[in-house]
Protein backbone atom coordinates (compact mmCIF):
# COMPACT_ATOMS: atom_id res chain seq x y z
CA UNK A 1 0.00 0.00 0.00
CA UNK A 2 1.41 3.37 -0.89
CA UNK A 3 1.47 6.22 1.59
CA UNK A 4 -1.96 7.74 1.71
CA UNK A 5 -3.68 10.41 3.69
CA UNK A 6 -2.75 13.97 4.39
CA UNK A 7 0.70 15.36 5.07
CA UNK A 8 -0.27 15.98 8.67
CA UNK A 9 -1.42 12.38 9.00
CA UNK A 10 1.91 11.15 7.69
CA UNK A 11 3.85 13.30 10.11
CA UNK A 12 1.67 12.11 12.97
CA UNK A 13 2.35 8.49 12.00
CA UNK A 14 6.09 9.04 11.82
CA UNK A 15 5.92 10.86 15.15
CA UNK A 16 4.09 7.98 16.83
CA UNK A 17 6.46 5.40 15.34
CA UNK A 18 9.43 7.44 16.57
CA UNK A 19 8.05 7.60 20.11
CA UNK A 20 7.30 3.87 20.11
CA UNK A 21 10.75 2.99 18.76
CA UNK A 22 12.35 5.17 21.42
CA UNK A 23 10.36 3.31 24.08
CA UNK A 24 11.43 -0.01 22.57
CA UNK A 25 15.11 0.92 22.44
CA UNK A 26 15.56 2.98 25.60
CA UNK A 27 15.96 0.06 28.06
CA UNK A 28 18.61 -1.43 25.78
CA UNK A 29 20.42 1.89 25.61
CA UNK A 30 20.08 2.29 29.37
CA UNK A 31 21.56 -1.18 30.02
CA UNK A 32 24.55 -0.44 27.84
CA UNK A 33 25.06 3.02 29.30
CA UNK A 34 24.78 1.75 32.90
CA UNK A 35 27.32 -0.94 32.06
CA UNK A 36 29.97 1.68 31.28
CA UNK A 37 29.24 4.02 34.19
CA UNK A 38 30.97 4.52 37.49
CA UNK A 39 28.92 3.96 40.61
CA UNK A 40 28.54 7.71 41.13
CA UNK A 41 27.16 8.27 37.64
CA UNK A 42 24.82 5.29 37.91
CA UNK A 43 23.03 6.83 40.88
CA UNK A 44 23.24 10.45 39.73
CA UNK A 45 20.12 12.57 40.01
CA UNK A 46 19.14 13.87 37.49
CA UNK A 47 20.19 10.75 35.54
CA UNK A 48 23.18 11.08 33.24
CA UNK A 49 22.23 10.00 29.74
CA UNK A 50 25.34 10.75 27.72
CA UNK A 51 27.51 13.20 29.64
CA UNK A 52 29.64 10.97 31.81
CA UNK A 53 33.14 9.53 31.61
CA UNK A 54 32.77 5.91 30.44
CA UNK A 55 34.60 3.17 32.28
CA UNK A 56 35.42 -0.43 31.44
CA UNK A 57 35.58 -1.30 35.14
CA UNK A 58 32.32 -3.27 35.23
CA UNK A 59 33.35 -5.43 32.29
CA UNK A 60 36.81 -5.97 33.70
CA UNK A 61 35.22 -7.20 36.92
CA UNK A 62 33.27 -9.80 34.95
CA UNK A 63 36.10 -10.84 32.67
CA UNK A 64 38.44 -11.30 35.59
CA UNK A 65 36.28 -14.00 37.09
CA UNK A 66 36.95 -17.38 35.46
CA UNK A 67 33.34 -18.32 36.22
CA UNK A 68 32.03 -15.82 33.74
CA UNK A 69 33.83 -17.27 30.72
CA UNK A 70 32.90 -20.82 31.66
CA UNK A 71 29.26 -19.80 32.00
CA UNK A 72 29.27 -17.91 28.70
CA UNK A 73 30.82 -20.91 26.95
CA UNK A 74 28.38 -23.35 28.57
CA UNK A 75 25.44 -21.20 27.56
CA UNK A 76 26.63 -21.23 23.95
CA UNK A 77 27.22 -24.99 23.88
CA UNK A 78 23.91 -25.84 25.57
CA UNK A 79 22.11 -23.49 23.17
CA UNK A 80 23.74 -24.98 20.08
CA UNK A 81 23.29 -28.63 21.06
CA UNK A 82 19.66 -28.27 22.11
CA UNK A 83 18.87 -26.25 18.96
CA UNK A 84 20.39 -28.91 16.70
CA UNK A 85 18.42 -31.68 18.40
CA UNK A 86 15.18 -29.70 18.47
CA UNK A 87 15.32 -28.56 14.85
CA UNK A 88 16.28 -32.00 13.54
CA UNK A 89 13.48 -33.83 15.34
CA UNK A 90 11.12 -30.93 14.63
CA UNK A 91 11.81 -30.85 10.89
CA UNK A 92 11.15 -34.58 10.58
CA UNK A 93 7.85 -34.34 12.43
CA UNK A 94 6.90 -31.15 10.57
CA UNK A 95 7.38 -32.92 7.25
CA UNK A 96 5.06 -35.71 8.30
CA UNK A 97 2.45 -33.23 9.58
CA UNK A 98 2.68 -30.87 6.60
CA UNK A 99 2.59 -33.48 3.85
CA UNK A 100 0.47 -36.33 5.14
CA UNK A 101 -3.09 -35.71 6.16
CA UNK A 102 -3.41 -39.10 7.78
CA UNK A 103 -0.86 -41.27 9.55
CA UNK A 104 -0.98 -43.23 12.79
CA UNK A 105 -0.62 -40.93 15.75
CA UNK A 106 -1.23 -37.65 13.93
CA UNK A 107 -4.00 -36.34 16.15
CA UNK A 108 -2.40 -37.36 19.47
CA UNK A 109 0.82 -35.71 18.30
CA UNK A 110 -0.96 -32.45 17.51
CA UNK A 111 -2.75 -32.47 20.85
CA UNK A 112 0.46 -33.24 22.78
CA UNK A 113 2.32 -30.42 21.03
CA UNK A 114 -0.35 -27.89 22.00
CA UNK A 115 -0.24 -29.15 25.59
CA UNK A 116 3.55 -28.82 25.77
CA UNK A 117 3.41 -25.34 24.23
CA UNK A 118 0.64 -24.12 26.52
CA UNK A 119 1.45 -25.78 29.83
CA UNK A 120 3.08 -23.51 32.42
CA UNK A 121 6.67 -24.67 32.89
CA UNK A 122 6.37 -25.11 36.63
CA UNK A 123 3.84 -27.95 36.18
CA UNK A 124 6.49 -30.09 34.51
CA UNK A 125 9.52 -28.80 36.36
CA UNK A 126 8.38 -30.02 39.79
CA UNK A 127 8.33 -33.71 38.73
CA UNK A 128 11.27 -33.27 36.34
CA UNK A 129 13.38 -31.97 39.24
CA UNK A 130 12.54 -35.12 41.22
CA UNK A 131 13.27 -37.42 38.28
CA UNK A 132 16.53 -35.68 37.44
CA UNK A 133 17.84 -35.76 41.02
CA UNK A 134 16.85 -39.44 41.47
CA UNK A 135 18.71 -40.33 38.27
CA UNK A 136 21.71 -38.38 39.53
CA UNK A 137 21.47 -36.00 36.58
CA UNK A 138 21.28 -32.76 38.56
CA UNK A 139 23.69 -30.17 37.16
CA UNK A 140 24.14 -32.28 34.02
CA UNK A 141 24.36 -30.47 30.69
CA UNK A 142 22.90 -33.34 28.66
CA UNK A 143 19.78 -33.47 30.79
CA UNK A 144 19.30 -29.75 30.25
CA UNK A 145 19.91 -30.02 26.51
CA UNK A 146 17.20 -32.69 26.21
CA UNK A 147 14.70 -30.67 28.25
CA UNK A 148 15.37 -27.46 26.31
CA UNK A 149 14.93 -29.32 23.02
CA UNK A 150 11.63 -30.85 24.14
CA UNK A 151 10.01 -27.65 25.40
CA UNK A 152 10.93 -25.81 22.21
CA UNK A 153 9.80 -28.66 19.97
CA UNK A 154 6.18 -27.44 19.43
CA UNK A 155 7.43 -24.05 18.26
CA UNK A 156 10.01 -25.61 15.91
CA UNK A 157 7.42 -27.95 14.41
CA UNK A 158 4.90 -25.12 13.95
CA UNK A 159 7.44 -22.90 12.14
CA UNK A 160 8.88 -25.74 10.06
CA UNK A 161 5.52 -26.98 8.81
CA UNK A 162 4.88 -23.45 7.51
CA UNK A 163 8.11 -23.60 5.52
CA UNK A 164 7.61 -27.15 4.25
CA UNK A 165 4.11 -26.35 3.00
CA UNK A 166 5.68 -23.77 0.72
CA UNK A 167 7.81 -26.37 -1.07
CA UNK A 168 6.09 -27.54 -4.29
CA UNK A 169 4.77 -31.10 -3.99
CA UNK A 170 5.68 -31.99 -7.59
CA UNK A 171 9.38 -32.37 -6.74
CA UNK A 172 8.68 -35.11 -4.23
CA UNK A 173 6.12 -36.84 -6.40
CA UNK A 174 8.56 -37.30 -9.26
CA UNK A 175 11.15 -38.72 -6.86
CA UNK A 176 8.60 -41.07 -5.41
CA UNK A 177 7.53 -42.35 -8.80
CA UNK A 178 11.20 -43.10 -9.40
CA UNK A 179 10.94 -45.42 -6.40
CA UNK A 180 12.55 -43.40 -3.60
CA UNK A 181 11.37 -44.29 -0.07
CA UNK A 182 9.65 -41.59 2.03
CA UNK A 183 12.66 -41.34 4.32
CA UNK A 184 14.95 -40.91 1.31
CA UNK A 185 12.66 -38.27 -0.15
CA UNK A 186 12.79 -36.45 3.14
CA UNK A 187 16.55 -36.67 3.50
CA UNK A 188 17.67 -36.03 -0.08
CA UNK A 189 14.98 -33.72 -1.40
CA UNK A 190 13.10 -31.96 1.37
CA UNK A 191 16.01 -31.14 3.66
CA UNK A 192 18.03 -29.23 1.03
CA UNK A 193 14.95 -27.39 -0.22
CA UNK A 194 13.90 -26.46 3.31
CA UNK A 195 17.37 -25.14 4.21
CA UNK A 196 16.34 -21.44 4.45
CA UNK A 197 13.41 -22.41 6.67
CA UNK A 198 15.66 -24.59 8.80
CA UNK A 199 18.04 -21.65 9.19
CA UNK A 200 15.24 -19.29 10.30
CA UNK A 201 13.78 -21.89 12.69
CA UNK A 202 17.20 -22.59 14.17
CA UNK A 203 17.68 -18.89 14.89
CA UNK A 204 14.38 -18.68 16.75
CA UNK A 205 14.91 -21.87 18.71
CA UNK A 206 18.44 -20.79 19.61
CA UNK A 207 17.07 -17.50 20.94
CA UNK A 208 14.57 -19.33 23.12
CA UNK A 209 17.30 -21.61 24.43
CA UNK A 210 19.68 -18.71 25.06
CA UNK A 211 16.98 -16.89 27.03
CA UNK A 212 15.67 -19.91 28.99
CA UNK A 213 15.55 -19.37 32.73
CA UNK A 214 13.21 -21.74 34.55
CA UNK A 215 14.98 -24.97 33.55
CA UNK A 216 18.54 -23.93 34.42
CA UNK A 217 17.56 -22.06 37.58
CA UNK A 218 16.14 -25.32 38.93
CA UNK A 219 18.45 -27.90 37.39
CA UNK A 220 21.85 -26.25 37.06
CA UNK A 221 24.42 -26.20 39.84
CA UNK A 222 27.97 -24.93 39.46
CA UNK A 223 28.82 -26.99 36.39
CA UNK A 224 26.07 -26.12 33.94
CA UNK A 225 24.90 -22.67 35.00
CA UNK A 226 23.78 -20.49 32.12
CA UNK A 227 23.94 -16.76 31.57
CA UNK A 228 20.35 -15.89 32.61
CA UNK A 229 20.86 -17.73 35.92
CA UNK A 230 24.19 -15.96 36.41
CA UNK A 231 22.56 -12.57 35.74
CA UNK A 232 19.69 -13.31 38.11
CA UNK A 233 22.27 -14.07 40.80
CA UNK A 234 23.02 -10.36 41.06
CA UNK A 235 19.70 -9.69 42.79
CA UNK A 236 20.30 -12.00 45.72
CA UNK A 237 23.07 -9.73 46.99
CA UNK A 238 22.08 -7.25 49.63
CA UNK A 239 23.45 -4.24 47.84
CA UNK A 240 22.49 -4.40 44.21
CA UNK A 241 25.58 -4.09 42.10
CA UNK A 242 24.03 -2.43 39.07
CA UNK A 243 27.22 -1.83 37.09
CA UNK A 244 28.45 -5.44 36.66
CA UNK A 245 24.83 -6.58 36.45
CA UNK A 246 24.23 -4.24 33.52
CA UNK A 247 27.48 -5.40 31.94
CA UNK A 248 26.41 -9.06 32.19
CA UNK A 249 22.97 -8.19 30.82
CA UNK A 250 24.53 -6.27 27.95
CA UNK A 251 26.67 -9.30 27.10
CA UNK A 252 23.49 -11.41 26.99
CA UNK A 253 21.43 -9.03 24.85
CA UNK A 254 23.92 -7.28 22.58
CA UNK A 255 24.58 -10.42 20.48
CA UNK A 256 20.80 -10.72 20.07
CA UNK A 257 20.46 -7.08 19.02
CA UNK A 258 23.25 -7.33 16.45
CA UNK A 259 21.84 -10.58 15.11
CA UNK A 260 18.35 -9.10 14.84
CA UNK A 261 19.53 -6.09 12.90
CA UNK A 262 21.40 -8.36 10.46
CA UNK A 263 18.67 -10.87 9.77
CA UNK A 264 15.46 -9.03 10.58
CA UNK A 265 13.93 -9.56 7.13
CA UNK A 266 14.20 -13.31 7.45
CA UNK A 267 12.93 -13.22 11.04
CA UNK A 268 9.81 -11.31 10.03
CA UNK A 269 9.29 -13.58 7.02
CA UNK A 270 9.61 -16.66 9.23
CA UNK A 271 7.07 -15.58 11.81
CA UNK A 272 4.71 -14.20 9.19
CA UNK A 273 4.57 -17.45 7.25
CA UNK A 274 3.25 -19.10 10.39
CA UNK A 275 0.76 -16.33 11.13
CA UNK A 276 -0.99 -16.17 7.77
CA UNK A 277 -0.90 -19.88 7.09
CA UNK A 278 -4.54 -20.10 7.99
Amino acid sequence: MSARGSRAGRWLSVGLLTVASAAALFPVFWTISTSVKNRVDTFANPPKFVRFAPTAKNYRKLFDSPDFWRIYGDTISITLASTALCVLAGTMAAYALARHRRFPGRRPLEATLVLVRAMPGMVLMIPIYQIVTRLDLYDNRWAMILIYATINLPFAIWLMSGFIEQIPVEVEESARTDGASPVRVFWNIILPLAAPGIAATSIFVALLAWNEFLVPVLLAGQHSKTLPVYISGFISNRTLDWGPMAAASALAIVPIAVFTALIQRRLVGGLSSGAVKE
Binding site: L17, A20, S21, A24, L25, P27, V28, T31, L207, W210, N211, F213, L227, P228, V229, I231, S232, A248, S249, A252, I253, I256, A257, T260, A261, Q264, L267, V268
Partner: peptide, 13 residues
Amino acid sequence: TALLLPMLLTPVA
Protein backbone atom coordinates in the same frame (compact mmCIF):
# COMPACT_ATOMS: atom_id res chain seq x y z
CA THR B 1 13.57 -3.51 13.31
CA ALA B 2 13.59 -1.23 16.36
CA LEU B 3 10.07 -2.20 17.39
CA LEU B 4 10.79 -5.91 16.94
CA LEU B 5 13.81 -6.03 19.22
CA PRO B 6 12.22 -6.24 22.72
CA MET B 7 10.57 -9.55 21.86
CA LEU B 8 13.92 -11.25 21.33
CA LEU B 9 15.79 -10.10 24.42
CA THR B 10 16.59 -12.26 27.44
CA PRO B 11 13.66 -11.82 29.87
CA VAL B 12 15.92 -12.01 32.91
CA ALA B 13 18.09 -9.16 31.63
